[in-house]
């Protein structure tokens, strides 16, 4: 059966959860909140920061000791960038290593001269791009540094095996940017475009709205059916 993902066919349901911590498991959380309302073929999305928190990747800044390189490089980061804070830069160095960060910094310098933006994160890689410093995360993690989730595709597949729901690990912001970090199944280009389009209004919200989970329901029968076994 061909896929028929279109915006007219869908409803986005946002689900308010309990306060999720490192004691929670992504598969249990998604199963708990979707089993009463999800149907085969629905998509479930979960915010990447919440997956990271459950994986113990919310770092207490008091535990981070910034080195000389972090102090130096953070000064050159844009003030709004997550690595402008020295402790976040230190975590970036820890995530990808000194050589890669140095290469990224060098490319950023070249980029600045040539007028090309974003080279630092492009070279440093998604692990650094996904670091969230304080600001925008809800309490009690509002002072923590949130790293990106580990193995997001694997997490998404684990959820699918338990629930039968195609799961997406997502990074969405209020500016309409949507990154799909993990998926239970490989996404075709038109499917990625569909997801980015329907989520551009950031249904996860920010601040302390506690809606890290969304269900994309397909309203017409068969509209979301996935061919083949789970």
């Amino acid at each position: 059966m061909p896929y028929r993902w279109s915006e007219q066919n869908t409803a986005i349901l946002r689900i308010r959860t309990h306060l999720i911590t490192e004691k929670d498991d992504p598969v249990d959380v998604i199963d708990k909140y979707t089993k009463a309302i999800a149907a085969p073929g629905d998509l479930v999305g979960i915010a990447e920061s919440v997956v990271a928190i459950m994986q113990g990747r919310a770092i207490d800044p008091d535990a981070v000791k910034p080195g000389i390189l972090a102090r130096l490089l953070s000064r050159f980061a844009h003030p709004d960038s997550s690595v402008s804070a020295v402790r976040s830069m230190q975590m970036a160095i820890k995530e990808v290593g000194v050589p890669k960060i140095m290469a990224a910094a060098l490319c950023a310098l070249v980029g600045k001269i040539l007028g090309i933006k974003g080279l630092f994160f492009r070279v440093a890689g998604p692990e650094v791009a996904q670091i969230d410093d304080s600001g925008g995360t809800m309490p009690p993690f509002e002072r923590h540094i949130i790293l990106g989730p580990k193995h997001p595709d694997r997490v998404a597949r684990q959820v699918w095996k338990r629930t039968g729901l195609w799961t997406l690990i997502l990074d969405v912001n209020d500016k309409g940017a949507v990154d799909i970090l993990g998926s239970s199944l490989p996404l075709k280009p038109h499917q990625s475009e569909f997801i980015k389009h329907v989520l551009r209004s950031n249904p996860f919200g920010n601040d302390d709205q506690k809606t890290p989970l969304i269900l994309i329901k397909f309203l017409k029968p068969g509209a979301g059916e996935i061919p083949g076994p789970v």
């Binding site: 800044p61 709004d80 804070a85 020295v86 402790r87 410093d133 304080s134 600001g135 925008g136 509002e142 002072r143 920010n206 601040d207």
Partner: peptide, 13 residues
């Protein structure tokens, strides 16, 4: 405190 400075950038904060 760096976390307070970072949090203040968020309009909702």
């Amino acid at each position: 405190y760096f976390a307070d400075e970072a949090n203040f950038r968020a309009p909702l904060f």
